[in-house]
Amino acid sequence: MEVRVLGCSGGIGGLDVRTTSLAIDDDILIDCGTGAGVLDVPALVAIDHVFLTHAHLDHIAYLPFIIDTVGDYRDRPLTVHAAPETLRIIRSHIFNWLIWPDFSAIPDRAHPLMRFNELRVGESIDIGGRRITALPALHAVPAVGYQIRSERGASLVFSGDTTLCEPQIAAINAIDELRVLIVETAFPNMQHDLALAARHLCPQMLFSLLDRLIVSPDVFITHLKPAQAAEITEEIATYAGRLRPQILKNDKVFRL
């Protein structure tokens, strides 16, 4: 199993700065931010499943464009998996015939181009030997993280957007063969209060999370706000704990 980073920034800016999307092999996306725009049309047509962590625009922005682009090429619907609250939000505010057509009813509800599947915390879906499990997260809107487990038993965890979340930390610590942890850190320490209000992490909160871990994955940091990326990177470099977090980069590939 391969996990490729299509986008991992907290903002946009040319080809190098694009928002969150991870590709699992050639048929699954985790989130659908502007990073998904690097895929050409044949690659987009091959996507059968999209798992959303939450409904914020930087994580769903390209989903409407993808389904509009690929629908007529496909012989089965694209399945969008997310927590019930997230699906309610995107159906009410995106696929509502005002912002974008409701592709779950096109050409008709019996033969849609897109379908929605509710996935609650703790629930898993097996797709071709890969298991995707929704993990707890704590954000400004209902949110989840994901554990992605390969057929060989190795796992990658993506925190999604979250502040310190004790249930998520407990879930991470319970995973055998956790090889990779991708965790957000959106703000520098000087914006600690904003991080708390927005339910994101800053480096000192990240350090608290890492200190609670008993597992030993490779740790990669995502979702840095572009204007503060250098400052956040410098602060993360001061961590003196057991794990050694690295800044995630576009096009990084994890093989599990």
Rank of each mutant, 00 (worst) to 15 (best):
V5R: 00
G13V: 07
G13P: 08
G14Y: 03
L15M: 12
L15Q: 13
R18L: 05
R18T: 07
T20H: 08
S21P: 03
A23W: 01
I24Q: 02
I24Y: 11
D26P: 04
D26G: 12
D27G: 05
I30S: 00
I30W: 03
T34E: 04
T34K: 06
G35I: 01
V38D: 09
D40Q: 05
D40I: 06
D40L: 02
A46T: 02
D48L: 04
D48R: 15
D48P: 00
L52A: 07
T53N: 15
D58K: 12
A61H: 08
I66C: 09
D72F: 09
D72L: 09
D75W: 00
R76Q: 12
L78I: 05
H81P: 01
A83P: 07
L87K: 02
L87C: 03
I89E: 13
I89C: 06
I89Y: 11
R91F: 02
S92F: 01
S92C: 08
F95P: 10
F95C: 09
I99Q: 13
W100Q: 14
A105Q: 13
I106V: 15
R109I: 11
H111G: 09
P112Q: 03
P112Y: 02
F116E: 04
E118Q: 12
E118T: 09
E118V: 08
E118Y: 05
E118A: 15
R120P: 04
R120L: 11
V121Q: 12
V121G: 03
G122N: 10
S124E: 11
T133Q: 06
L138K: 14
A140C: 13
G145Y: 00
G145M: 01
Y146W: 07
S150R: 01
S150V: 05
A154N: 14
L156R: 08
L156E: 11
V157Q: 04
F158R: 01
D161M: 13
D161A: 14
T162V: 07
T162H: 07
T163R: 03
I169W: 02
A170Y: 11
A171Y: 01
N173E: 09
I175G: 00
I175Y: 05
L178C: 10
V180P: 02
T185G: 10
F187D: 06
F187M: 14
H192C: 08
H192L: 11
D193M: 12
A195I: 05
A195D: 08
P203W: 01
Q204F: 10
Q204E: 15
L206A: 06
F207N: 00
S208R: 15
R212G: 14
R212I: 06
P217S: 03
L224C: 12
K225T: 15
A230H: 14
E231N: 07
I232C: 11
I232F: 01
T233Y: 03
T233M: 02
E234Q: 15
Y239P: 13
A240E: 14
L243C: 11
R244C: 08
I247F: 04
N250Y: 00
K252D: 10
F254N: 08
F254T: 06
R255K: 10
L256P: 12
L256K: 05
